[in-house]
């Protein structure tokens, strides 16, 4: 009888390059091209279509990080280069996302240190990088320019642009050919608006990743799940201003009540389950970059994506 899925989509997701190898002008061991999908997640029929990229989030001042992670990782958290190295060689991530938490100190002004940290991380790992800049509008411009400069040629992903705060990050990205994370609070229309703003100041479609904001499991995920589905749906229906890959980072996962108040014996297990469940469900809804903080979440997501993707297990290697 031949029952087949046919949605009649007309759009497709823009391709974004993350990382650059030597031949591409950078120093990364590997680079990825994500996007390009023409249907819902994991329904692509083509062999070797890419599976979501699993990203380990690290930081340069672990004072701001969950003790669950710092206890698990041990001393390496005091050395971003080592931590990034472990992300690749021990934990098996596809990418590393560095949060410059050092810039959150009151009256932070040591901009040069930002460049040094990024260089350390670049030499610690051959994986493509996401750099999460300052949290403070006053120093944004300097911090982002420094990030851009330090990673010149590496096709990094810079975060995070928001509706009221996107100019300096966009300027840095354009000056040094990096891509930008565009974050809006769980709403398709706001996501679209921000993408249009970015487009108007010259950031091209293939340099934008949408962050629809992930409320973690039990704390807003019900909204984020639909926001991601709606973005993907609009993109496939042909709305080019929403047709960019989606990033998911449920940063509150390790601090929600269920995790924080669990018995010490299962603390790691429940933290990992919380990240895993959120990450997998987000990938099913349409996210293509899944960020986690607990290293043990990585192999679980890897296996699940493997079983959902035809042919290949690792991310869409370029």
């Amino acid at each position: 009888m031949g029952f087949d899925l046919n949605f009649g989509w007309s759009g497709s997701i823009a391709c974004v390059q993350l990382g650059a190898t030597k031949s591409e002008g950078g120093t990364r061991r590997i680079s990825y091209r994500i996007g390009g999908e023409k249907t819902l997640p994991f329904l692509e029929k083509i062999q070797g279509s890419s599976s979501p990229l699993i990203t380990l989030e690290i930081c340069d001042n672990p004072q701001y990080w969950s003790p669950i992670v710092t206890n698990y990782c041990g001393d390496m958290v005091h050395n971003s280069g080592e931590w990034a190295h472990a992300a690749e060689t021990v934990y098996g991530a596809d990418m590393v996302r560095l949060y410059l938490t050092s810039t959150r100190k009151r009256d932070f002004s040591d901009i040069a240190s930002v460049g040094t940290t990024i260089e350390t991380v670049l030499s610690g790992t051959g994986l493509p990088l996401i750099i999460e800049g300052s949290n403070e509008p006053k120093i944004d411009s300097e911090v982002f320019l420094k990030c851009g400069e330090a990673g010149q040629g590496e096709r990094m992903l810079l975060g995070t642009a928001e509706a009221g705060r996107y100019r300096s990050i966009a300027a840095a990205a354009m000056a040094y050919d990096h891509s930008v994370i565009a974050q809006s609070p769980i709403d398709v229309n706001l996501a679209k608006q921000l993408n249009i703003l970015l487009k108007e100041i010259g950031v091209s479609r293939d340099h934008i990743i949408i962050d629809p904001y992930t409320g973690s499991l039990g704390y807003g995920f019900e909204y984020s799940y639909s926001a991601m589905e709606r973005i993907r749906f609009s993109a496939l229906k042909g709305d080019a201003d929403l047709a960019m890959p989606i990033i998911c980072s449920a940063i509150d996962s390790l601090t929600v009540k269920e995790v924080r108040e669990s018995e010490p014996a299962i603390l790691d297990d429940i933290a990992v389950q919380w990240e895993f469940t959120t990450g997998l469900a987000a990938a099913i809804a349409g996210a293509e970059i899944i960020c986690v903080r607990h290293p043990r979440t990585i192999p679980l997501l890897r296996k699940a994506f493997g079983s959902l993707t035809p042919g290949k297990i690792a991310g869409g290697e370029g």
Binding site: L217, F221, E222, Y225, E258, S262, I266, I270, W274, T277
Partner: peptide, 16 residues
């Protein structure tokens, strides 16, 4: 299910 998987599954079901 283990306690960790049990809580995550029930919470996801509630959310969805």
């Amino acid at each position: 299910l283990s306690p960790a998987s049990a809580k995550a599954a029930l919470t996801l079901r509630q959310n969805i």
